[in-house]
Design a protein around this nucleic acid. Sequence first.
DNA 1: TGTTAATAAGTTAACGTTAACTTATTTTCA
DNA 2: TGAAAATAAGTTAACGTTAACTTATTAACA
Lengths: 350, 350
Amino acid sequence: MVRKRQVTLSDIAATLGVAPMTVSRVVNRNGYVSEETRERVLHAVKAMNYRPNGVARNLKRQRTETVGLVLGDISNPYSAELANAVRERLWSSGYNLFICISEHSATEDITAFESLVDHNVDGIIVATRSNEEGDEHLRDIVDSHMPVVVIGRDFQYDGVDHVSADNLTGGFEATQHLIDLGHRRIGFIGADLKNRGSLKRLQGYVNVLNAHDIEVDERLVTGRKEAISGVPGYSTEKMGYEGMKRLLSLPNPPTAVFARNDFTAIGAMTAVKESGLSIPNDMAIVGFDDIPMATHTSPPLTTVRQPMRLQGQLAAEMLLRRIGDEETSKRKERVLNCELIIRESTVLTG
Amino acid sequence: MVRKRQVTLSDIAATLGVAPMTVSRVVNRNGYVSEETRERVLHAVKAMNYRPNGVARNLKRQRTETVGLVLGDISNPYSAELANAVRERLWSSGYNLFICISEHSATEDITAFESLVDHNVDGIIVATRSNEEGDEHLRDIVDSHMPVVVIGRDFQYDGVDHVSADNLTGGFEATQHLIDLGHRRIGFIGADLKNRGSLKRLQGYVNVLNAHDIEVDERLVTGRKEAISGVPGYSTEKMGYEGMKRLLSLPNPPTAVFARNDFTAIGAMTAVKESGLSIPNDMAIVGFDDIPMATHTSPPLTTVRQPMRLQGQLAAEMLLRRIGDEETSKRKERVLNCELIIRESTVLTG
DNA sequence: TGTTAATAAGTTAACGTTAACTTATTTTCA
DNA sequence: TGAAAATAAGTTAACGTTAACTTATTAACA
């Protein structure tokens, strides 16, 4: 059996001997149609299994009531939270959300942008990490009058709003907490010093050490050996594990570690436990994000909570405003506070 | 500043004094264009910031090279794994993936279907739980010649392929494992007995008890008190926590529990620990899914691993075949084996 | 009872692109 | 050298829908 052609408005119209416009009016519930005609049309719609072709409709209407969200690292629970917050906010304004994943490379980033633009979404929220090629394409997209908002992406461009957690202060507080506990040799796992520009959490770490006149020891800052092409510092549990192994093998290992995120911290914990050391006595560990798993590790993980829901909501709102406005207003930026959550991976309680 | 109209092929053509078709040929790299014209066009495309309107192109071409995936419960790590597997398989065939989330209700399910259909995706993969209204819409969509594949959704309809884990056997093995350990009073958390038809894991539990002539005690099977409208048995950590509280308050509580998924199991563990009992000595717990967190709980969680990646890959392949084929072949079904992963929430090792 | 307003349609053209066809020019080589 | 083939365009019509306009009929009411 050959796949049948899609049933169109005109097919229905032809069958009933009415104008396509009449059918359109019934389907869209606007304009005047007699009760009798309406029913004949609805009947035919059902019988012939007609469904409106959204592409054609969108082409005519010049809007789709759909927004795209580009997510990296969908496995990270906070991505899920973000996506849900965005979706809920959009939903309440009658917009749909399409999510694209771009987990590994700039190429994927770009493909995601392109396919969203291709489908004429009304706006795009980008929540992947910066990369040069991706940024370039993003600028092109913005220039072609597509409303864009970025979350936590280091991307500055006129007309593109920006939401992020205050990673700098977050990193500062995490490290300060370790110093308050008396630690002086503090490691960082998850990025190299040279990337501190793009990774604010690392910059926060550096700032604290500087503020306390502690020398930043390059050997204590460990990223992954081979960077994945195009995306700086893609992070996993394995990275944390390997990073900690490396730190522990130093002649003079740190007594505390700040990991770029909770997965990395959890990987690091595994390495510490394997080496027979105790947390937090021999090694204190701080993560970042406060994923659900952080409360279930043993010991539970001290971490910095970032307000993912709020970031999602704000981003959605900013985007909706840009979509609605005929105005192309100036770039807005919102940086949200983080909160240090102290658990037993740094201090024993009770 | 008023938002500018999108730049079109014809704008470029008009500027250069050529036919729109010539521009189209340059942009799509097909047909004959002189080197000189090509360069003039490319230059103008760049200068005027032209991007092709995918909607219009799709309308003409009658395909979008995009597939939709409807996911429930995106917070569950296995959803992420599934989505990634689907995406990778599609990517290698040149297809893009749009993900829609439908977390709470049949209405969301339906909206997701509609918006994907509206955007003329070439096919849809559905990985949400069954519900009557959603199924009805799904049938309509299938009838309108949209290729559809379902993952783990109890939906039987001609021409709709189906992939799932063998939840029945999985539930069987999980419960059998507890019986092998000597347990006779075994609870189930996450659904009510009356829903066992749609929840194969629960049916597996019932089957084992029957096979061992153990009476199925209705009080030991506990779902959530108020079901969320439209979606049977939406599951969370909280549900596991509350379920376990309820079981522990029984005059004769169970000595082991099989939870419908790992989150539920983890919630249940929290309740057990709070009441001062020990796992697995006073209470053995088995989950389902083998999410990453399962290895990090204390004690690590015994669970049933389902092959999410494989399910995603297969679903994508089945869908691609349906998209490619002009044939509308018969419904195919693949049920994949699960694997019991024994950890210390049921047996102390070493 | 005539004039205005509401109702129930139909007609036309366009959204931006491209498949299919046509025309004109240049190249190839028997 | 001339007929066929290749190249470089232009023209037309459609993909399926709907905004905007027009026409005809019916209802309302001063």
